[in-house]
Write a protein that binds this DNA or RNA. Structure first.
Lengths: 210, 210
DNA sequence: TGTTAAGTGTTGCAATTGCAACATACTATA
DNA sequence: TATAGTATGTTGCAATTGCAACACTTAACA
């Protein structure tokens, strides 16, 4: 798994961060991250921790828009958030590196190998990250809760090669991920059980079809 | 707007493509692109043309999963498609460059400035592309057609700074983009008109609120 | 310019969903 | 282990949506 500093020595990493004028920020568990940090023209690197970006719907429900974890890169990629009602929360103690995108692009010493390695790493990380986005779009474009669920199951099952799926989060979070009402999700899962498509024990779901 | 060969001379571009063992492929308008090309472990660059990746739903409806246009980069980012029922179609005459991801990562002459520029460009392109993905997720996570429409309107309006929105595609395509039934979309637009939220003339939609 | 295909508008109806309200189960911790 | 807080299960009901069918309009092109 690539991280932004893969194949860069600690010494060169420090030098690079200095030359790029990087900021290092720490957030305690369950503190909110100022919007100005998320939606400015910077590349952010989550060194460690866990951040959720959640949209607050007018009726009090939430939608999970983005999760950021160790080694994730975010940036102008989420600048569309400027116009939205959202909260970014560090759910764990979190350490961020913030680098102005322009200082990355216009870095003077272009020939430095550690700089080039850094860019290559960023590219690889974004390439991987794109998978998650596409996967979610693939799921969200299904039109019924049942089909969203089945798409989620199938993609997950294909990924692990197993008919057993271990939910990595709560059913509440699953409902947010699928962007559907929790109780309606619960109902649909009940139907799928009754019709013999799946078997559910706690957070383990077993696919019984195909 | 960055393209993969920004700030690289034609001569160096050719050298780079040769060293990376790149394939160049042409597709005529309205021909399908073999899946093996889309979902292998390569980075694809759309030199020119327009590709749609569409999922075929069992009931005959479609979902637009991805659009690729001039200078777009795609790659292992869409490898999840392997498991899905989709068709990739060149809607215009299209020229593709295909490069094995490994040969990019393991490129021997790491110090070549054109190579480093190339990676930097790929990074910037993916960073921009991520915006579209996030934007769409932002929209798709709205739970009603009305809210999806309004989110779409708002984000578009914020982007252009205008209350007038020119649909860049048909209402059929809009329905696919929002992942909702076309006739239900049509009905909802009618309601929005009747309630005075919007005004519609052909493909121009004017926001009357706020 | 006539013909055909594609896009758009409309509506009844059944299926699905969100919402609200409440019951029950689980989990952390004082 | 008692208790509070969170998660999950359930259900009636109203709102929303998908679906199908058909009419009408616009665009493409021979």
């Amino acid at each position: 798994m690539t991280n932004p500093f893969t194949d860069i020595t600690e010494k060169n990493k420090q030098k690079l961060l200095r030359l790029l004028d990087a900021d290092i920020l720490n957030f305690n568990e369950n503190t909110n991250i100022p919007k100005s940090i998320i939606d400015n023209n910077s590349i952010g690197i989550v060194v460690e921790g866990y951040i959720q970006i959640i949209r607050i719907n007018y009726n009090g429900t939430n939608a999970l828009i983005e999760e950021l974890q160790d080694n994730d890169v975010f940036g102008s990629s989420i600048s569309y958030l400027k116009s939205s009602d959202y909260i970014a929360t560090a759910k764990e103690n979190t350490k961020l590196i913030l680098i102005d995108l322009n200082s990355i692009i216009n870095f003077k010493e272009n020939s430095k190998s550690y700089y080039n390695q850094f860019i290559k790493n960023l590219f690889l990380i974004l390439n991987e990250k794109m998978q998650d986005k596409n996967r979610r779009i693939q799921i969200l474009t299904r039109r019924t809760i049942r089909n969203k669920l089945l798409e989620y199951f199938n993609l997950t099952s294909k990924g692990t090669g197993s008919k057993n799926i271990y939910l990595p989060f709560s059913f509440i979070a699953l409902a947010d991920y699928l962007a559907v009402d929790r109780s309606a999700l619960s109902r649909e899962i009940k139907y799928l059980k009754e019709e013999g498509f799946i078997d559910v024990k706690g957070k383990r779901i077993t696919l019984l079809y195909k």
